[in-house]
């Protein structure tokens, strides 16, 4: 591949990263929310209905994320990444459905399915974080180790 072609390929990947990053963030935030809701459901079932509005919002966000993943222009080099991003979104949608099932029926079959889907979405998401740079899952800015990070990151960049 000549230099121009190289540079075009780099640009395509950069465009993919720029477009995929917010989608991954949306999946990550929504997954945390659904998992948090599931945790409420499993630890204090009587309080879970209070957060049903949040679950409805999460379901809508999961659908948006799923559509956004499908709409991404995927260069060859990012196909593996995209595969896991798509799987994370699909499992998240299934987790939302499983959470609703759990709300209706308090049975271990339902909660098994829910845990399985949450785990699947989380694992796929973690894989996306490993495959390409810029997809880290934790915002360390709130962690006690990280308040000095902006300067350090800046040093790394310059």
């Amino acid at each position: 591949m000549d230099k121009t072609a190289d540079s075009r390929a780099d640009e395509t990947v950069l465009r993919y990263v720029a477009a995929a990053r917010p989608v991954q963030q949306l999946i990550s935030d929504t997954l945390t929310q659904v998992a948090g809701f599931a945790l409420l459901l499993m630890t204090s079932r009587n309080r879970a209905p209070l957060a049903e509005g949040a679950l409805a919002g999460a379901r809508e966000a999961a659908m948006r994320a799923s559509e956004a993943v499908r709409a991404l222009a995927v260069p060859k080099i990012a196909e593996h990444h995209h595969h896991h991003l798509r799987a994370a979104a699909a499992a998240l949608l299934q987790a939302c459905a499983a959470t609703l099932d759990c709300l209706r029926v308090d049975a271990s079959e339902q909660s098994d399915a829910l845990v399985r889907m949450l785990r699947s979405s989380s694992d796929h998401l973690r894989t996306t974080a490993r495959l390409l740079p810029g997809f880290e899952l934790v915002d360390f800015g709130q962690a006690c180790c990280a308040a000095h990070a902006p300067q350090r990151l800046l040093q790394n960049v310059t």
């Binding site: 990550s28 935030d29 997954l31 945390t32 998992a35 948090g36 599931a38 945790l39 499993m42 630890t43 909660s111 098994d112 829910l114 845990v115 949450l118 785990r119 979405s121 989380s122 998401l125 973690r126 899952l137 934790v138 915002d139 360390f140 800015g141 709130q142 962690a143």
Partner: peptide, 20 residues
Amino acid sequence: RFLTGGGDPADIVRAVEAAK
């Protein structure tokens, strides 16, 4: 998002597994 920083979705998923 400042309000939710420092959290990892995988931790909450593991917490769900422990709750289960």
